[in-house]
């Protein structure tokens, strides 16, 4: 037998045996701290409740809502089609498939920004892209989408447009019916009909 084969066989056994002696890797690959800091201060990492509502209504296939509260809170109330990944399970291999999906926008939310922000930082450190936080969380969702308050009369036209959208979204998510404003002093509509004029007949 060729001595080279013996040497190569021995080398392969040594290399494979070396694998057994290596300690397990526990340190996840992380992005550099300066990149993380830069990303943290970007306002683009937030999405508004209106943007999320619009994507849900339009059934945007790229939206992936991730509820980072615990399972009980998720059962009590959650957004349509959201998945529940409690913050302490975010690194669990069971949930790793939910993050880093190409062309998907994963939006973290909780009751407020706290838990969602933490989830965002963990995911960002692990170099996941396409991740966002729903600004204000579910508290803001209730305030702006479920029970929107009308803007003051002096507000800009944009504010009224936003209010109209929120009212529409509220109807969509709560199933409310549209009620026209009631008024007691109904004014009678007077219908005036024009007298029919006879077609000119005869002539010269």
């Amino acid at each position: 037998m060729n001595k080279n084969y013996l040497f190569l066989s021995l080398l392969m056994i040594l290399l494979a045996g070396g694998l057994l002696l290596l300690p397990d890797r526990t340190n996840y690959s992380q992005i550099p701290p300066e990149d993380l800091l830069w990303d943290i201060i970007q306002p683009t990492r937030y999405v508004t409740t209106e943007q999320v509502a619009k994507m849900i209504i339009e059934q945007d296939p790229t939206l992936e809502l991730i509820d980072v509260r615990d399972a009980d809170a998720f059962k009590a109330f959650s957004l349509p089609n959201a998945v529940n990944i409690p913050l302490d399970s975010l690194l669990s291999p069971n949930y790793s498939d939910y993050l880093g999906i190409e062309d998907m926008n994963a939006v973290f939310y909780a009751n407020d920004d706290m838990l969602a922000d933490q989830a965002w930082v963990i995911a960002k450190r692990l170099n996941y892209s396409g991740i966002y936080v729903m600004k204000g969380g579910l508290n803001c969702w209730i305030k702006t989408i479920i029970q929107p308050a009308p803007p003051p009369e002096t507000a800009s036209l944009d504010a009224f447009d936003l209010y109209d959208f929120r009212k529409g979204a509220s109807i969509y998510f709560t199933g409310k019916t549209i009620t026209a404003p009631k008024s007691d002093n109904k004014s009678k509509v007077i219908v005036r009909r024009k007298k029919k004029t006879k077609a000119t007949a005869g002539g010269c």
């Binding site: 037998m1 084969y5 056994i13 290399l15 045996g17 694998l19 057994l20």
Partner: peptide
Amino acid sequence: RVVAFAFVVIAIAAFYVTW
């Protein structure tokens, strides 16, 4: 890693037997 080590041993045994 255990699977890889086992396969290396099996492969080298197979090389010898087939030789």
